[in-house]
Design a protein around this nucleic acid. Structure first.
Length: 411
RNA sequence: GCCUGGGUAGGGUAGCUGGACAUCCUAUGGGACUGUGGAUCCCACGACUCGGGUUCGACCCCCGACCCAGGCCCCA
């Protein structure tokens, strides 16, 4: 017999873990609801084109792609921004702006699995569509920060801006620009220097670029101003940071972050945790333009995706404690016991023997599964109209009516 | 795709530079035990990741694959 194994990079999620995940999920949902975002769900697979148009070369070779029986090129979604924007173009283009959407779904990437990196993983994210104002950028950042802090995660927020970098290299070809952005994203400074020499970029450009991406922290903006001169993008970025300050959102300016996906335009941000291993980014986002690529009008948007599995690695969500009742019965009282169990399930969690175990073994089993109470439904009890409720922890028991029992277990 | 370290019952382990039915703990199911759990005892269940090679003989040595953990890369 061949044992079928779980596909590489995937996980089975067992009841305890699912309970933790549902707890975090419901906290996240509550936050985005308070901010007025509506949930959307898109298909698990889409046309391959949706992801190859603008997500960048990087994503193509890690996509789960296949040809369906009709000969169509399809792909399991590697991320959700593109699908949500496709959905937006189809359904929300003429709706009131801004359009505020959130999602929580699984994504697939063909990568080498390691700590907090899987081939099937979950993303919780939002897209704020229709505004290119700093206020929109700030709302999205602040929301990301609040979602994470709602489960006790205080990550390191880094905020950057691609417009500023792009203003310096706008004279270069688009291929050269893309290549430069990729090297910046990789933080490959040596590679970047080599590349600038290779394409014979003018010296001032190279110098400016290299010093710009090196800017980090408080003074970054002023320094950038010295390098680039007055730029409208700089003003906007300044306003963004001002608003973050006003909201007491802590951040580090980092003009060296570039993001792996090619569709980002202006503001970009990433949130890191020091509690994870090599895969320490728990959130990434920024402003982008995608709608026009999917047949819609050119529309500014801002969004982020949170790596849900990474969040689960580092947080301890509150778990709801439900009183567990184990109903012990005998051959001659089984039917009645099952009826009683049905009634009690309206009030709490109830187990009943389905193994035809003997009395003592039922009790033993109630103990091993951690039942809070055992309710004994025997002939004597049924005749008296009361049932024996035993508290497992203390071992104390008493005869009570069904109503009294309900009152007790609902406490 | 690359690097490092690993794969023995459901979980945890012992055995090994080759020798008979692979050790123990735990979990699970049953019994001792006819209406009072956690203990104890007994029984059952259940594994050498897979495929080659070397050998009279491989869990052990060699090669490869697969999978796992961690790192590179990339990302969430």
């Amino acid at each position: 017999m061949v044992r079928i194994e779980r596909p590489r990079g995937t996980r089975d999620l067992l009841p305890d873990e699912m309970e933790r995940r549902r707890s975090v999920e419901s906290i996240f949902r509550r936050v985005v609801d308070r901010w007025g975002y509506g949930e959307v769900k898109t298909p698990t697979f889409e046309s391959l084109d949706l992801f190859t148009i603008k997500s960048g070369e990087g994503i193509i070779d890690e996509i789960y792609a296949f040809v369906d029986k009709g000969g169509r090129q399809m792909a399991l979604r590697p991320e959700l921004t593109a699908p949500v924007m496709r959905l937006y173009v189809e359904s929300f283009q003429v709706s009131a702006k801004p359009c505020k959407l959130f999602y929580f779904d699984n994504c697939f990437r063909y990568e080498r699995p390691q700590k907090a990196r899987f081939r099937e993983f979950w993303q919780f994210g939002v897209e704020l569509i229709g505004s290119d104002q700093p206020e929109a950028d700030v709302e999205v950042i602040a929301l990301a920060v609040e979602i994470l802090s709602s489960v006790g995660i205080e990550g390191e927020l880094r905020v950057g801006n691609l417009d500023i970098i792009k203003s310096i290299i706008k004279g270069l070809s688009s291929v050269e620009q893309a290549c430069i952005m990729r090297l910046i994203d990789k933080n490959d400074i040596v590679g970047l220097e080599d590349y600038l020499k290779e394409i014979k970029a003018p010296d001032p450009l190279s110098e400016n670029l290299l010093s710009l991406i090196d800017l980090k922290g408080r003074d970054a903006l002023e320094e950038a101003l010295k390098i680039t001169g007055d730029l409208p993008e700089l003003d906007r970025f300044s306003r963004t940071l001002e608003l973050l300050d006003a909201l007491d959102v802590e951040y580090i300016v980092d003009l060296g972050i570039a993001r792996g996906l090619d569709y980002y335009t202006g503001m970009v941000f990433e949130i890191y945790s020091d509690k994870l291993g090599a895969e320490n980014q728990i959130c990434g986002g920024g402003s982008y333009r995608l709608a026009h690529l999917f047949g819609g009008r050119d529309t500014p948007s801002t969004g982020f995706g949170i790596g849900f599995d990474r969040v689960m690695e580092i947080c301890n969500p509150p778990l709801r404690k439900t009183t567990t009742l184990y109903l012990v019965s005998f051959d001659d009282t089984r039917t009645e016991a099952m009826k009683i169990a049905q009634k009690l399930r309206k009030h709490t969690r109830v187990h009943i023997d389905v193994m035809n175990r003997k009395f003592k073994d039922q009790l033993r089993h109630a103990n091993t599964i951690g039942a809070d109470f055992v309710l004994i439904v025997g002939k004597d009890e049924l005749e008296s109209g009361k049932l024996t409720l035993k508290e497992m922890r203390s071992g104390e028991q008493e005869l009570l009516t069904l109503e009294e029992i309900i009152e007790r277990v609902e406490e």
